[in-house]
């Protein structure tokens, strides 16, 4: 019978229409600015810089090694090194970035800078509501706009932030262990040298 297929389709549409009134699964849209679908944990948009503690300037993890700048495919990161050095979380003296700009009108959110950063200092934000009328003022994020606390990182990507913290703790432990081993070795060497010296002293004394 001609028209049977169309009828069958109509039944389907009717089922979906009525379904949308009582089955939340069939009601798939939300009124955007008023309602928002909660962000997925891994959702990423643009990168930001993490700082530890409360002061962003002293706590910034970035050591301006410029690896991300080199690896970023569209070349939207711009870094200038500072002359002064500051101690990082391991106590090593490290450079700080004097300028750290990300041009988010060019950034494509690919996350490669995050992957290559060896200091866990750049991570992806999930804030997607950027808008601005000026190409450079509002879409060129500078260091102070990029700096966000580790607490914030924990609030947007809890699992990943936890892992990052663990990596850092591990790094710190490794570093301390290494320092300790180094110190021990040094002490041992000193001791040996001292005993050797003593021995040789004794020997020279004997010879005399």
């Amino acid at each position: 019978m001609i028209g049977k297929g169309i009828l069958k389709g109509m039944v389907e549409t009717a089922r979906n229409l009525t379904g949308s009134f009582h089955d939340p699964d069939r009601l798939t849209t939300v009124e955007y600015p008023e309602q928002k679908i909660p962000a997925k944990e891994n959702a990423r948009n643009f990168p930001f810089l993490i700082y530890d503690g409360d002061d962003w300037e002293t706590g910034l993890r970035c050591v301006s090694c410029q690896i991300c700048e080199k690896e970023c495919p569209p070349q939207c990161i711009y870094i200038e090194k500072d002359k002064e050095k500051k101690p990082d979380f391991l106590g090593k003296m490290q450079m700080q970035p004097k300028i750290f700009d990300i041009d988010v009108s060019v950034c494509m959110g690919c996350q490669i800078c995050v992957e290559v950063c060896p200091f866990e200092s750049i991570r992806m934000d999930n804030d997607f509501e950027y808008a601005g009328s000026d190409r450079f003022k509002s879409l060129l994020l500078t260091k102070d706009q990029l700096a966000k606390s580790n607490k914030y990182y924990h609030s947007i990507h809890p699992t990943e932030a936890q892992e990052t913290d663990e990596i850092r703790v591990q790094k710190r432990e490794d570093h301390l262990a290494k320092e300790k081993a180094k110190a021990e070795k040094l002490a041992k060497a000193k001791k040996e040298a001292a005993s050797k010296a003593a021995l040789s002293k004794a020997e020279t004394a004997k010879e005399e």
């Binding site: 001609i2 028209g3 049977k4 297929g5 169309i6 069958k8 389709g9 039944v11 389907e12 549409t13």
Partner: peptide
């Protein structure tokens, strides 16, 4: 569901 909706549709 999708096939019921469209596959046997005479117009299609």
């Amino acid at each position: 569901e999708f096939e019921a909706l469209i596959s046997e549709n005479e117009v299609l």
